[in-house]
Amino acid sequence: MIVCVAVVGHQSFTEADDALKLHHIVHCSLDVVDERVNNPKKSGPLNESFLGLLCPPENYKVYGYLTNTKVKFILVTTDLDVRDADMRNFFRRFHSAYVDAVSNPFHVPAKKITSRTFAERVSTIVKSLG
């Protein structure tokens, strides 16, 4: 089950709907994203937005995705048996939802996304993956 989806912009943290621990997990996983972005040599070339598994699967699996504008999507799931392809697909759909949300002229960039439609779309995507 996907327990947490987070959008992390340059500085702001926008969407998560669960416990403190998940906040910690998401926050810590940003270090991995930084590491991957900053040391592309060590971890292989970074030629796609999908970052794959970020943290060792302990109780959760943490997947990451980085848009061209350096907005990070982090997904935390308790399902230890997920396929990368599913995750890729999920992030692709999530990304387009995000793009639609921030294209709203009333959205102020780098601020919290308040759109209810976005929230609904995200829950739909999350549910579709189980």
């Binding site: 991995v32 971890s43 292989g44 943290c55 060792p56 396929r83």
Partner: peptide
């Protein structure tokens, strides 16, 4: 770092004893 591609490839932190 191992060549990526494997599904259960290692993540960065697993190489650090800190983890």
């Amino acid at each position: 770092f191992p060549v990526s591609g494997r599904a259960d490839r290692l993540t960065e932190w697993e190489l650090y004893s800190a983890y």
